[in-house]
């Protein structure tokens, strides 16, 4: 393997939140009398979120992106590997200590807001739980910061529009000044004109508060707009990772290429052939060798046997990595 294939250290800034070789295996019922089967949701994932940065995590159903989010939030523990906060294992911190530093924003704001509480109460709850600051003043400040009118302070979630509810969820997540926001499909349930408002808000908040973002999305355009780095997950593995603009403009891994080709942008016509065939990814039956090989249009025999590691891209920038044998050997 060439020198360029070794994973270099690219940034002096230490990651604030990091997954290191993280594996997560669930036990899935296979029927009433059958023994449970293991489901490997994540198989050795590295992901580093640096202070103040925005990284996008892209993948399809079953790729493990939401599992990774739960591990990074400390809601679940990894089966193998470690999640580190400021270099310390997350498992050594209490749930409350983790929650002070890492906060979630979910896809469906209606499902994540208590319907019987008023907006001010919802936003202020984390302040009460963690006993920080002057609650009333901070709530008023947050309502302004996320662009909600002051008059909604007493409203219930059902009286708000979808966009306003997502603003409430973001205000609540920001209340205790976390270092990282983990946003799982924060705009997927919203109309495009409202999505634009929420994306603008997240960009503004990042500038104003320095909070780091992990943006989990299936929408590459959203990730490309908001994030400087992107990692692409496929069946529990990162298959490509690097600067978002590079990865989206010139994807190298065949799966990343297929994802980029699937973006239907306005002004385009016709439908490209992705060459992925009719196989569907199934986390209960992970293929041998490269886990993408049954769908890969560039597959060679070696791919069926050798599981490729995430390595540097020959001829690519130093902070760009893929897990593809053919890219590594320079034939793709």
């Amino acid at each position: 393997m060439s020198a360029a294939a070794q994973k270099p250290e690219v940034s002096a800034a230490a990651p604030v939140l990091e997954a290191r070789g993280v594996t997560k295996v669930y036990s899935v019922s296979a029927g009433l009398f059958a023994a449970p089967r293991p489901l490997t949701a994540l198989a050795g994932v590295d992901l580093a979120i640096r202070a103040g940065s925005a990284i996008g995590l892209v993948g399809e159903s079953g790729s493990g992106k939401s599992t990774l989010a739960r591990l990074l939030l400390g809601i679940e523990q990894p089966t193998g590997g470690a999640v580190l906060f400021d270099g310390k294992p997350l498992g050594a911190l209490s749930r409350r200590a983790v929650a002070r530093r890492v906060q979630p924003v979910f896809q469906d704001p209606f499902g994540s807001l208590n319907p019987s509480h008023g907006v001010a109460e919802i936003i202020g709850l984390p302040l009460a739980v963690h006993r920080v600051g002057d609650k009333a003043a901070r709530v008023a400040e947050l309502i302004d910061q996320v662009g909600l009118p002051r008059r909604v302070a007493d409203a219930r979630p059902r009286e708000l529009s979808g966009g306003q509810r997502q603003r409430v969820a973001i205000a609540r997540a920001l209340a205790i000044r976390p270092d990282v926001l983990v946003c799982d499909e924060p705009t997927s349930a919203l109309d495009v004109s409202v999505q634009a408002q929420i994306l603008n808000l997240l960009a503004d908040l990042r500038r104003e508060t320095g909070v780091a973002l992990l943006l989990i999305s299936h929408n590459l355009s959203v990730v490309g707009h908001l994030c400087e780095r992107v990692a692409i997950l496929y069946l529990g593995r990162v298959v490509e990772e690097g600067p978002a603009a590079d990865v989206l403009a010139v994807p190298r891994h065949p799966y990343a290429k297929a994802l980029a080709a699937s973006v239907l942008s306005v002004g385009g016509t016709g439908l490209p052939d992705l060459g992925l065939g009719q196989e569907w990814p199934n986390p209960l039956a992970i293929p041998s060798g490269c886990r993408f090989h049954p769908r890969c249009p560039s597959v060679v025999d070696a791919c069926r046997e050798t599981d490729p590691a995430l390595t540097g891209v020959p001829g690519g920038s130093a902070d760009r990595h893929t897990a593809c044998l053919r890219v590594a050997e320079g034939t793709l």
Binding site: A196, N200, H225
Partner: peptide, 22 residues
């Protein structure tokens, strides 16, 4: 015009630049 302007499109809009809203 407003709908089209609100779409993020890295080939058209600069990353992180504010998107048009209605």
């Amino acid at each position: 015009v407003g709908l089209l302007g609100s779409l993020p499109d890295p080939s058209r809009t600069a990353p992180g630049a504010p998107l048009a809203t209605i």
